[in-house]
Computed example of a mutant assay.
Amino acid sequence: MTSTVAARIDAVRAERKGPLIGYLPAGFPDLDTSVEAAIAMAQNGVDIIEFGVPYSDPVMDGPVIQAACQRALGNGFQVPQLFDAIARVRAEVDVPILVMSYFNLMMQQGIDQFAARLVDCGAAGAITPDLIPDEAGEWLEASDKYDLDRVFLASSTSSDERLARIIANSRGFVYTVSTLGVTGARADVDKSARVLTDRLHALGEQRACVGIGISTPEQVGEVLDYAEGAIVGSALVRALARGGVAELADTAASLAKGTH
């Protein structure tokens, strides 16, 4: 199997410290603006995009992302619009796009159909924050069938046996949760992120990307001292909510300074 995301991570790391991975909810504040915002991120230093699927009952999202998703849903966002948005972004910028989706939304579309539509719109794969490999049989089969990346989450509470299973079933990278709790910018990225990354490396993972709590260029650089990627969500969503695409672009460019 090939991995578009792994290839991009390796290519970026050959040139600088590592990639900046940026998250935005599709459809926020509206569909057209979310497309424009994703393009602006790619043009201002974001190497890989996570397009979140707005969901009414999130378990991982903090208040900034929850509010953005509720606004998108209130404006009538529907899952099929996700694929249109990705196709439009991919037509303008050559950046890998991962969908971040709670598994229930994928099941509602049909796992095989969801995977097929990811391929058709040009997405690289999906991150499934509420799905563990043990219960991912249909998604593992479909992602193999369509050669899609699949990213599972690892946390500091996971046993080595669990981490090994996550590594074996992930393709692209392992989403390394920096701290327990929901997403949101923090003054300090939890030190457990470094410990967890070291554990993943010791178990054979080559691409551990750290997310949750990263909000400054300095934090991006700090994470890239020990991990293969830095993931930023709430800081970008907040910038888009506060100042539109222009402020989002400035924030992305500032965060990207930490990758050098």
Rank of each mutant, 00 (worst) to 15 (best):
Ser3Ile: 00
Ala7Thr: 13
Arg8Pro: 02
Arg8Cys: 09
Arg13Val: 00
Glu15Trp: 00
Gly18Met: 00
Gly18Val: 03
Leu20Cys: 01
Leu24Trp: 09
Pro25Trp: 03
Ala26Gly: 13
Gly27Asn: 05
Phe28Trp: 04
Pro29Tyr: 09
Thr33Leu: 12
Ala38Cys: 14
Met41Thr: 05
Ala42Gln: 06
Ile48Trp: 01
Glu50Ile: 02
Phe51Arg: 06
Gly52Cys: 06
Val53Trp: 06
Val53Tyr: 13
Pro54Cys: 10
Pro58Ser: 12
Met60Lys: 11
Gly62Glu: 12
Pro63Trp: 13
Pro63Val: 10
Ile65His: 13
Ala68Met: 11
Gln70Cys: 07
Ala72His: 01
Phe77Ser: 06
Val79Met: 14
Phe83Asn: 01
Phe83Tyr: 15
Ala85Ser: 15
Val89Met: 13
Val89Ser: 10
Arg90Gln: 15
Ala91Ser: 15
Val93Gly: 14
Val95Thr: 14
Ser101Trp: 05
Ser101Glu: 09
Phe103Trp: 09
Asn104Phe: 08
Met106Asp: 10
Gln108Ile: 12
Gln108Trp: 03
Gly110Lys: 03
Gln113Ser: 14
Phe114Asp: 01
Arg117Met: 13
Ala123Gly: 13
Ala126Trp: 04
Ile127Trp: 11
Leu131His: 03
Glu135Tyr: 07
Glu141Thr: 11
Ala142Asn: 04
Asp144Trp: 04
Asp147Tyr: 12
Val151Arg: 11
Leu153Arg: 01
Ser155Leu: 06
Thr157His: 08
Asp160Trp: 08
Leu163Trp: 08
Arg165Met: 05
Ile166Cys: 05
Ile167Pro: 06
Val174Tyr: 08
Tyr175Leu: 06
Val182Cys: 11
Thr183Glu: 10
Gly184Phe: 03
Ala187Lys: 12
Asp190Ser: 15
Ala193Asp: 03
Arg194Val: 02
His201Asp: 10
Gln206Cys: 01
Cys209Asn: 04
Cys209Ile: 01
Val210Phe: 03
Gly211Ala: 02
Thr216Lys: 02
Val223Ser: 07
Asp225Phe: 04
Tyr226His: 10
Tyr226Pro: 03
Ala230Cys: 01
Val237Leu: 11
Val237Glu: 11
Ala239Asn: 07
Ala241Leu: 02
Arg242Cys: 07
Arg242Trp: 07
Gly243Cys: 04
Asp250Thr: 06
Thr251Met: 14
Leu255Arg: 00
Lys257Thr: 14
His260Gly: 13
